[in-house]
């Protein structure tokens, strides 16, 4: 890439400028290690949607998912010097978010078990979307069907949508999603979604 050589000539540009995907993320990690303010902000701005949808796909409510997202970024701040491979930071984020989401979920499960009187008052296990987001009956059905999928499918389908976008191509690489193909597992998840949607509305 000719752009890389040009960049070295212009010292005022941040080292990740003009780079994309894996190269850009790696440049941000290396710059953060060297104390470049703003390097982690770039990762936070560009990869928070990935972290968010993994946390939500793991069944956390919006408030818990927000805490997990921030905790993951604090963990990156803490571990930025020890991540063995800066090019693998997206994989590190995916793993860390899954682990943190699981920990949070297990902890709430334990608390509910300890307090059955609380469990009675938990209205629904469906993590609600934005309060006003579900405007139509169709959206309500879609939401309800989606959250009856197993969590593996929920995460996989959310990430499939992200990975299909140019700025998240690296997600497809990390998850080894073949380009332009849905693949059998995602096909099964989509079929399950359709089936839950069709069966969810009382004989449409």
């Amino acid at each position: 890439m000719g752009a890389v050589t040009e960049l070295h000539a212009t010292r005022t540009n941040p080292p990740w400028e003009g780079l994309e995907g894996t190269e850009r993320h790696a440049a941000c990690v290396i710059a953060a290690r060297e104390g470049h303010r703003g390097a982690l902000d770039v990762l936070v701005a560009e990869l928070t949607p990935l972290v968010w949808h993994i946390a939500r796909g793991a069944g956390l409510d919006r408030s818990a998912a927000e805490d997990v997202a921030q905790t993951v970024w604090l963990a990156l701040l803490r571990h930025v010097d020890s991540i063995a491979e800066p090019r693998a930071v997206v994989g590190w984020l995916i793993t860390t978010t899954r682990r943190e989401a699981k920990r949070t979920r297990q902890r709430s499960a334990t608390q509910v078990e300890l307090l059955p009187e609380v469990a009675e008052h938990v209205p629904s296990t469906e993590p609600m979307p934005e309060a006003e987001a579900l405007r139509t009956e169709r959206d309500r059905q879609l939401w309800s069907a989606f959250h009856r999928l197993d969590q593996r499918c929920q995460e996989l389908l959310r990430l499939t949508v992200l990975a299909g976008r140019a700025e998240y191509k690296v997600v497809a690489e990390v998850l080894r999603m073949p380009h332009g193909s849905i693949g059998p597992t995602r096909g099964r998840c989509l079929t399950a979604l359709r089936s839950l949607y069709d069966n969810g509305d009382g004989g449409r």
Partner: peptide, 13 residues
Amino acid sequence: WLAQVARIVDELD
């Protein structure tokens, strides 16, 4: 159906 999931990702959640 992927477009429906995209709607969840972008608009509902």
